[in-house]
């Protein structure tokens, strides 16, 4: 046996066959499951947007989305308008929620005007403006949907991540972290300031809603800094639109 499998020709042939078999298998799985996965991602976006504006099935301390079956119906019920802001011009587009924030960020880097999606929702007579934002955590991408009122006071937020450390950075998607953002002001004395994920802000119960700070997660400094940074850089782009609302 060892003679046969030690020869160079056998080794090369084995490698070739292996690559073809494994490559074919992976390609087949990926393409066979593509439509299912895309559909799941589409529904998840709707669930995320609804979650941020408070349409969810939260129980106790756990964050629960509306079910995938109900998501499309609730989405059209609560989301009244989907806007795209580009170069200061606002247009309506009912597919705006499918805009890939990652691609738009890359576009903006090479000098093109970034398309900014904004979803206008209504619940119990109140209007919510929900913006998707995206940034970097410790290991990989982090993103969020932030619901605000017309004064840029946060009314709800949903955070998610691709590969933050379980038990540490991954906890940005826990209720205790996300709920801290509710009521926080993004503006300070008329100028945009963002919300800082701060260590040692002497406000662990988060009673001061106008300090532009929420309490950080122990052991997740870099993920927290990433959250602060993406709020600062991405939500700032929406400030001109909110100023037009005041007029």
């Amino acid at each position: 046996m060892s003679n046969k499998t030690d020869s160079n020709i056998y080794t090369i042939l084995f490698a070739i066959v292996m690559v073809i078999v494994v490559g074919g298998l992976l390609a087949f799985t990926a393409s066979a499951l593509r439509s299912n996965i895309d559909e799941n991602k589409r529904l998840e976006k709707q669930q995320n947007i609804l979650y941020a504006m408070g349409v969810n099935e939260n129980e106790g301390n756990s964050a629960v989305f509306v079910s995938t079956e109900k998501a499309p119906e609730l989405f059209s019920q609560y989301i009244k308008k989907q806007l795209v802001i580009q170069d200061g011009k606002v247009s309506e587009d009912d597919q705006a929620y499918l805009i890939d924030v990652k691609k738009e960020q890359a576009n903006a880097k090479v000098g093109n005007a970034r398309r900014l999606p904004l979803f206008v929702g209504e619940k119990d007579g109140k209007t919510f403006y929900i913006a998707p934002i995206r940034g970097k955590g410790l290991w990989d991408a982090i993103w969020a949907y932030v619901a605000m009122d017309e004064n840029m006071v946060v009314k709800g937020a949903y955070f998610d991540h691709k590969g933050e450390t379980p038990g540490l950075g991954a906890n940005i998607k826990m209720r205790y972290f996300m709920d801290d953002f509710i009521g926080e002001h993004l503006m300070k004395n008329g100028a945009f300031k963002g919300i800082n994920v701060a260590k040692g802000n002497a406000d662990p119960k988060n009673e001061d809603k106008t300090d532009n700070e929420v309490d950080a997660i122990a052991g997740a400094t870099i993920t927290g800094d990433g959250v602060s940074a993406m709020i600062k850089s991405d939500l700032k782009l929406y400030v001109p639109y909110f100023e037009t609302l005041k007029q």
């Binding site: 080794t11 084995f14 490698a15 292996m18 494994v22 992976l26």
Partner: peptide, 27 residues
């Protein structure tokens, strides 16, 4: 498995196993 490239073969087996499971779960 040819002994010269056995580590690579092992790596491919475990990586593709995990990726396939991940894809099926995603769907």
């Amino acid at each position: 498995i040819p002994s010269k490239i056995r580590i690579i073969v092992q790596l491919i087996v475990v990586a593709s196993l995990v990726i396939i499971v991940d894809q099926v779960l995603k769907a």
